[in-house]
Amino acid sequence: MERNTPVLSARDLRKAFPSDGERHLLRKGMHPAVDGVSFDIYPGQTFGLVGESGCGKSTVAKLLMGLEKLDSGEVYLEGQRIDQLAPKKLRPLRPQFQMVFQDSGSSLNPRKRVMDILSEPMLYHGVAKSDTVQARMDELLEQVGLPREMKHRYPHEFSGGQRQRICIARALSLRPKVIVLDEPVSALDVSVQAQILNLLRDLQEQMHLTYLFIGHGLGAVRYISHRIGVMYMGRLVESGDAEELFAHPAHPYTRALLDAVPVADYALRNRPRITLVGEVGELPASGNGCPFAPRCPMATASCLEHVPELKPLAGAPERTVACLRAGEQR
């Protein structure tokens, strides 16, 4: 798979926002939301991005889509650099990368019928003409599992799961290569979540789609992803093959994250697990060093000296880990 050109590449993405918090107005600092994130996504595959709230995963999605301006870094779509393109130049490329958001309620215009929501982008980008757009719409609705009569309805007439199907249909309408899915199932009930996850998997298979799937539900991310990156405080701390990564996490944060997920298996009820102390956002007192060090059960003095780089794990070149003590026994 590594032989292919990646469909979407992120190179050293950086973005800082002005921090609020308790500081004095004049001493307002910048808070790095995304701090040097790089990854490649290969055709027909899903790259999953996991992490807790505030880790910067949604900002990564927005940076890739051009919805936030990069401070520095590069974004490539099939080898072509897109982050510096003028809006006019970017527009013809837009159909190739589409996005689905978590809140389907607010990402569909409440005053438009489904037929308008779906047909408008297609007509605008010239993907369908006015005589073919109806047929294409029926096809899309069928693909996402909605009856075609429903195109006459308004968004509020649908359930959350159905609305997410409409968002997926809208993303599909332009025949994209990549779809960025930002927490698409987080707001849904389990039974509906399973429907949407299966739908996304099937669509990927049928159309050879490439996904960036962002989520905090680790089970869901694992289910849909081929490769996964784990983020902590704006950085990737570990990435690798989905199954490998979850079976043998090398970074202590990944381990703790996996340990914290409640498992519906009675036999595992009293398993030994790492409980992290403290919360995200507490930086090492020294001001530099590994951002995870203050909460890390394995941290040593050297962890506080400098930020560990993301390096291939010894014996597993597909895996990268940013930890001085990566792979050591817990």
Binding site: S159, G161, Q162, D189, V190, S191, V192, Q193, A194, Q195, L197, N198, G217, L218, G219, A220, R222, Y223, A242, E243, F246, A247, L258, V261, V263, A264, D265
Partner: peptide, 25 residues
């Protein structure tokens, strides 16, 4: 039973397909 089989686990085998309950509540 359906609910239990609709939850994606973190250690599921790769080829497992989630059971999805058709329709909605």
């Amino acid at each position: 039973r359906a609910l239990l089989r609709a939850v994606p686990g973190i250690h599921d085998p790769k080829d497992r397909r989630l059971y999805s309950i058709p329709g909605a509540v």
